[in-house]
């Protein structure tokens, strides 16, 4: 017993080291005083102040946030509507086909999605809308693919929900639309929130599709980082990465904490 548990512990340690050591090294080097990323030159926060003065990176970060918020919100709306249509409108012709088609973008290679969206936004030159390629077209592209994720998440929640809850509301005098507002939406709200967060993250770190659909002048944060890395990693990027990791960690902790609290208040669910 003892021996096997020692073995298991070392496997566990190696596993976690493999996952987290690179990130720790990256964070450590963001405090490196030296210009070269590979040599330790003493502790310093100079790269953080340099980062705050780098307008290009700050602009890109702001643009990325904007695109992520807008696209996640619209994708959540559309994805929820799609899920409701697939799950709560009874049986109709083509439902199975639509269900399959909504999940297809999840498994489609990004390059192909990007290419097809590029062709799609090129229509802009014909129709004149949107007025130019850039943040608008990136947002539209992000909505298109993240909507599928939201739809799948909300749909699985709807499928596991007791249909008699909605029937009970209808039985008590709720018209179909009121029932959706009173019962269905509040109960799928956690799934919608999860979908929004997923859409937000997908949009925030998307590089391929953004590159295909962006025009001149609109560079998202991943695009800027990627272009900078091609010229060699600077400690500035490390500092940026450390900040992002910090924000993500705080976000995950808050989400976990609220979910735990909700479970304690409402143990059945």
């Amino acid at each position: 017993m003892r021996r096997s548990s020692t073995f298991l512990y070392s496997v566990l340690c190696f596993g976690y080291a493999f996952l987290y050591l690179p990130i720790l090294v990256l964070m450590l080097y963001s405090f490196n005083n030296a210009r070269l990323a590979t040599v330790w030159g003493g502790f310093s926060t100079r790269w953080y102040s340099a980062l705050l003065e780098n307008a290009q990176i700050l602009d890109a970060a702001l643009l990325s946030l904007q695109i992520a918020v807008v696209s996640a919100t619209v994708a959540t709306l559309l994805g929820t509507l799609a899920a409701l249509g697939l799950n709560r409108m009874g049986r109709y012709r083509g439902r199975t086909l639509f269900t399959g088609m909504i999940a297809a973008p999840l498994v489609m290679p990004e390059v192909i999605t990007g290419l097809s969206l590029l062709l799609f936004v090129s229509l802009q030159e014909l129709t004149g809308w949107p007025s130019s390629r850039g943040a608008n077209t990136i947002t539209i592209a992000h909505i298109t693919f993240s909507m599928a994720y939201v739809a799948v998440i909300v749909q699985s929640r709807l499928a596991s929900m007791d249909h008699s809850l909605e029937e009970a509301a209808m039985d008590l005098g709720g018209r179909p639309f009121a029932v959706t507002l009173d019962i269905t939406l509040p109960l799928v709200a956690p799934a919608m929130a999860a979908g929004w967060l997923l859409a937000f993250t997908l949009s925030l770190d998307d590089l391929v599709i953004s590159s295909f659909t962006s025009g001149a002048g609109a560079s998202t944060l991943p695009m800027v980082i990627f272009s900078k890395v091609k010229l060699g990693v600077t400690p500035e990027i490390n500092a940026l990465a450390t900040i992002i990791i910090g924000i993500v960690t705080v976000g995950v902790l808050i989400a976990g904490w609220t979910m735990l609290r909700q479970q304690r208040v409402n143990p059945g669910h």
């Binding site: 007791d162 509301a169 109960l187």
Partner: peptide
């Protein structure tokens, strides 16, 4: 309802 369907 059999499941009671009490709105959670």
């Amino acid at each position: 309802f059999q499941s009671y369907a009490v709105f959670p």
